[in-house]
């Protein structure tokens, strides 16, 4: 078999590493891993031309569970690290994944700027509305009255972020929401997201069986958006606002100029040194 044919023959399993996830049994993040590997296998991408960048948190462990190039960096900075990689290596397919705390709290600034910058990469927030690695504290997507954390025993009292709305306002050119109970549907969304030219944001509703066991009921509430993908931000904003945050599908897609720094053409040192002489 020639190399190209071999690559096409890669299965989702070929995109998994030999490491077994440390995620709790029942965690939605397993389904995100499956969706990513299914999407990559379906797209026939060579493993070495894909990089998966993550930060810190339960979900950010995902990089180590794939067989593509990966970087498990510091808390909240995955998008920044990925942006540097993409700027320097425009040829790579860059995926970024992490949790709601990593992406929307400590990494919130990078999130809005990554949306605005519109580099060609895909960002998956595995949203379980809680910090898992640190034992169940409220995150920026936690409901204000969730009082099960010792850190905020009366609840946060603060309204949560709406990630899709935030992404839209900040300028993301592709916005979708998936659910880990439907890993195949999530994989389909990811194929579209990775194929999209520009910054694609996918919120994956991913229940936490340990700290948010009530989320195991999400599977009874999640439904598909009943409208087509919108390219109109006003319409998309209305759809996001009218929704209870539990509808899945591609909400918004609108191609706009992709940020690609540099020309990639080396014109040599030329006159640079002579600028110094007098």
């Amino acid at each position: 078999m020639d190399q190209a044919a071999q690559q096409i023959a890669l299965t989702p399993k070929d995109f998994k590493s030999a490491l077994k996830p440390v995620w709790c049994p029942g965690c939605g993040d397993f389904a995100v891993l499956n969706a990513i590997t299914k999407a990559l296998a379906f797209m026939g991408l060579p493993r070495e031309e894909v990089a998966l960048i993550s930060g810190i948190g339960c979900s950010s462990r995902i990089a180590a569970y794939t067989s593509v190039y990966g970087f498990h960096g510091v808390h909240g900075r995955a998008l920044a690290l990925a942006s540097g990689l993409k700027a320097a290596r425009g040829d790579l397919t860059v995926l970024v994944a992490g949790g709601d705390g990593d992406g929307l709290s400590i990494g919130g600034n990078h999130f809005i700027h990554a949306c605005r910058r519109n580099m060609d990469m895909t960002y998956i927030i595995m949203d379980n509305e809680v910090y898992g690695m640190t034992k169940g504290q409220a995150s920026p997507t936690t409901a204000p009255d969730w009082a099960d954390s010792k850190l905020t025993p009366h609840g946060t009292g603060i309204r949560p972020f709406q990630p899709a709305g935030l992404a839209l306002t900040a300028g993301a050119s592709f916005i979708a929401r998936g659910f880990t109970g439907d890993p195949n549907g999530l994989a389909k969304i990811l194929v579209a997201a990775i194929g999209h030219k520009g910054f694609s944001f996918v919120q994956a509703l991913s229940p936490c069986p340990t700290f948010r066991p009530e989320q195991m009921l999400w599977k009874h509430h999640v439904k598909a958006f009943d409208q087509e993908i919108s390219s109109n931000p006003v319409e998309a904003a209305q759809r996001i606002q009218a929704d209870d945050g539990m509808s899945t599908g591609i909400i918004y897609q609108n191609e706009r100029p992709v940020f690609r720094p540099g020309t990639g053409v080396d014109n040599g040192m030329g006159s640079i040194e002579s600028e110094f002489t007098i």
Binding site: G26, G28, F30, K38, F42, T180, D182, N184, G185, V191
Partner: peptide
């Protein structure tokens, strides 16, 4: 494609639900 199978549920009928 994985998502084009018309299973009754979200995944194949013999595939156990992770949750």
């Amino acid at each position: 494609a994985p998502w084009d199978f018309e299973w009754e549920g979200m995944e194949g009928p013999e595939t156990g639900d992770i949750s």
